[in-house]
Design a protein around this nucleic acid. Structure first.
Ligand SMILES: [Mn+2]
Ligand SMILES: [Mn+2]
Ligand SMILES: [Zn+2]
Ligand SMILES: [Zn+2]
Lengths: 146, 146
DNA sequence: ATACAAATGCAAATGATTTGCAATTGTCAG
DNA sequence: CTGACAATTGCAAATCATTTGCATTTGTAT
């Protein structure tokens, strides 16, 4: 029942963006591409520990990906950032549990929101993107309380 | 032409929430209540420097306000948080400049978004709130480029 | 005036993220 | 295939916003 995401051709992605095809970066993209939820750096470190990559290297890779818009950094958490593969055609939003801080991905754009973004663009000249995060309590945490 | 916000009765607010009416907290609420944009801690420290409050005290006050839902912390920036008075009847959103990192307040809720939140609530059991932030380039920064 | 919890100041700790620099590695032209 | 060279990495140290422990002060209620 676990939702599995569509894997991507990591090598091709790296090449398209002018990145070297290094073991870490290849693996990072693979991990991110099959994850149903955005992942913190700590998890990415654990899932790549067989490569023994340094934390600084992980951060540098992720920052490069974000810069290239290959990956999106989710800051809903405020403490540690979460990273999620950016899928060109699948614009997503997020929902965060205020109890366990789990961040789930809503795998589609909230209807009509993009249209509204156009209206709001009168305030700014150019709008690149928007981030929408809902905050609530997830089912698991609700069960834990009662 | 500067947009001025409606000031609030800081003393009353503190009392309602069971806080002591201390000089710093009173002043903080006054500053936040007339600010047209969310403010970082550094600015709040500057605007309250006549009181010589310690940074830790500032943070503790702000955290207490956020906990009491008197103030909203905006984390769109990811580096430093921004603080904005929470007005019960005026639900706002934000728009951030990716160039100068200015965060402006959109002083109303994006139409129909709250209705959509109800739909999304099928994913979670309970949804308390949502944060929506647009990212773009503000007029000032666009002018600076050309 | 007294009592007590809340708030503060100060200094030290945290913890995620960044940076400098030398060594390594992937890519590409020759 | 072989260098050359820029991109990537490892390691250690630095940053920087935010938090925390503890002793002291202050606001509020009785
Ligand atoms: Mn959207
Ligand atoms: Mn809204
Ligand atoms: Zn939860
Ligand atoms: Zn700007």
């Amino acid at each position: 029942m676990k939702k599995q995401m569509q894997p991507v051709d990591a090598a091709a992605l790296l090449e398209e963006h002018g990145f070297k095809k290094t073991p870490l970066r290849l693996l990072l993209l693979e991990i991110l591409s099959i994850s149903p939820a955005p992942l913190p750096v700590s998890t990415l470190q654990r899932k790549t520990k067989k490569l023994g990559a340094d934390l600084a290297t992980l951060y540098r890779a992720l920052n490069a990906f974000v810069e290239a818009e290959l990956v999106q950094a989710i800051t809903a958490d405020k403490k540690k950032a979460l990273y999620e593969l950016n899928r060109p055609k699948i614009h997503v939003h997020h929902i965060m549990c205020d109890s366990c801080n789990t961040v789930e991905t809503i795998p589609f754009c909230i209807k009509s929101l993009d249209q509204q973004a156009i209206n709001v663009s009168r305030l700014f000249k150019k709008i690149y993107s928007h981030q929408l995060a809902f905050v609530g309590t997830c089912r698991k945490c609700l069960r834990a309380v009662r």
